[in-house]
Each structure stands twice: as structure tokens, then as C-alpha cells.
């Protein structure tokens, strides 16, 4: 479980995160939704420690993270997988080397053990015959899959994804979403996914946090969304004509 307690983050005068408190449970896909620029990425980066909150605490299974020392942070980070918005694969390494990188760093496994694990993870995300290719030689959807494979190679307890399906076509996007959801359930991972894509939310969200102007504005499940009278959330969720129509039909 990841707990966020009274987190504030400012960039100069720009108060991006305003006293955010929430928690994320294991075995569930928790989604953080909100408009572009609402502070989703900043929140995620605070959680994983790439940004330091100006105040507040983050707990990974009761272990305080933000104020802990480097050694302890490194330990938690080995339990944490992250899928960045653009994939963030190392462009000078092959697909296989990218996935193997965390193993090289943190395990004393033999070459064949590592290879077995790499092959297993790549197969799990549905990548075949691309081991020796470079990230620039594969499609965007495949890059995301490889990024997921790299994030789960050390068997993480926590998985964070920043807009994992941005820039993908709807069909590929759904496959990536389902993959994240399946992995979460399979290994009982505490998964946090940032998105502004309502399709993903309807597809895989187990719990939802709606960030509005830096506030944790609304929290609930998929079904709650249809029954809420929260104006800002309704404006966000049912922005398109299609969604408005769906809402009218379901309620």
C-alpha cells in the first residue's frame, strides 16, 4: 500500500499540488485522472521521489520515503517499477539490454538466469523476435510494452505508469491497459496509473482519484462516476458528445 499524506508541491509561486492525501491499495489499479497540466505527473514524481514535496509524507507499506536517506530510497526503488510517458527506454541499448539492465545492477544472477528472466518478461508483455532491436526500430506500442517489461523485471511491489497509452491508437491502448491490469492482479502489485483517457478508466480502473487544479477533488470507483453530481468531474468525464450520450442512456 502506498499512502500520500498532506503533500504540497510548489514551483515558485505555482502551487501545483495542494494538500493531497490519498492511498493506493495492492492488487488494484488506481488511476489518477485530470486535465493536462493539473499536476498528475508532478504527483507521480513526488510519489516515486523524483521530486521532493515541499511538505507532506509518502509511505510505502508504512515506510516513510521522502525524508529517508539515499540507501533506503535505493532499497525501496528496487521494489518499484516505473513506466514513463515516453517509455524512456535507453536508446543506446537493445530491447533485451534495456530489460536486463535492472538485473545487471541489482542481482548476482548468472548470465543464463538473467536471460531466462528477460525472456519471460518480454514474453509476458507479448514481445517476440525483437530482443536484438533498438528502441528506435520498434513501434510506439512495442516501446511501451518493453518499458513495462523493464519495470516488472525485478518483481516490483509497486508499479507507476505515467500516461502509458498516450500516443497509441485506441486498440493498442486497450491492450496496454489490459496488460497493466492483468499484471497488477497476477502479482498483487500496488499500481498507480496517470491518464486523461476515459477509455482506460472505464477499462481497468479499480479506484479513481480526480485531480482538479492541484486538489484531490474527487475519489471513487468507476460506477460512482455515473452517479456523482460533482460538476468539475462531470465536465471532465463527459466532455465529448459520445460520452454525454452514453451517460444519458445509462442513467
Amino acid at each position: 500500500m502506498i499512502e500520500v499524506v498532506n503533500v504540497n508541491k510548489l514551483f515558485g509561486d505555482n502551487h501545483v499540488l495542494k494538500d493531497i492525501s490519498t492511498s493506493f491499495e495492492p492488487g488494484k489499479v488506481s488511476m489518477i485522472i485530470g486535465r493536462s497540466g493539473s499536476g498528475k505527473t508532478v504527483l507521480l514524481k513526488c510519489i516515486i521521489g523524483l521530486l521532493i514535496p515541499d511538505s507532506g509524507e509518502i509511505y510505502f507499506d508504512k515506510r516513510e520515503f521522502t525524508k529517508s536517506n539515499i540507501k533506503f530510497k535505493t532499497q525501496i526503488r528496487q521494489e518499484l517499477g516505473m513506466v514513463f510517458q515516453g517509455g524512456a527506454l535507453f536508446t543506446s541499448s537493445t530491447v533485451e539490454e534495456n530489460v536486463r539492465f535492472p538485473l545487471d545492477l541489482f542481482t548476482n544472477w548468472s548470465k543464463s538466469e538473467k536471460q531466462k528472466r528477460v525472456d519471460f518478461c518480454l514474453e509476458r508483455v507479448g514481445i517476440k523476435n525483437a530482443n536484438k532491436l533498438y528502441p528506435t526500430e520498434i513501434s510506439g506500442g512495442m516501446q511501451k510494452r518493453v518499458a513495462i517489461a523493464r519495470a516488472i523485471v525485478l518483481n516490483p511491489k509497486y508499479l507507476c505508469c505515467d500516461e502509458p497509452n498516450s500516443g497509441l491508437d485506441p486498440q493498442t491502448a486497450i491492450l496496454i491497459d489490459r496488460l497493466i491490469s492483468e499484471i497488477t492482479k497476477e502479482y498483487n502489485i500496488t499500481t498507480i496509473v496517470n491518464t486523461h483517457d476515459m477509455n482506460s478508466v472505464m477499462e481497468i480502473a479499480d479506484s479513481i482519484n480526480f485531480i482538479f487544479q492541484g486538489n484531490n477533488w474527487w475519489q471513487g470507483t468507476k460506477d460512482d462516476i455515473f452517479n456523482t453530481d460533482n460538476k468539475e468531474l462531470n465536465d471532465f468525464v463527459f466532455a465529448s458528445e459520445l460520452c454525454k450520450k452514453i451517460k444519458k442512456e445509462t442513467t
Binding site: 516515486i48 523524483l50 518499484l80 516505473m82 524512456a88 545492477l105
Partner: peptide, 17 residues
């Protein structure tokens, strides 16, 4: 610089490097 803007440096840091 390219590694920085494509978040590869963030990715390294997250892996504890």
C-alpha cells in the same frame, strides 16, 4: 541532453542508479 528530455535520466534514477 536527449537522455534528459526523454526521461532516460529519470528512469536511471528511479532504478536506484
Amino acid at each position: 541532453g536527449t537522455m534528459k528530455i526523454t526521461e532516460q535520466i529519470d528512469a536511471l534514477e528511479i532504478m536506484g542508479v
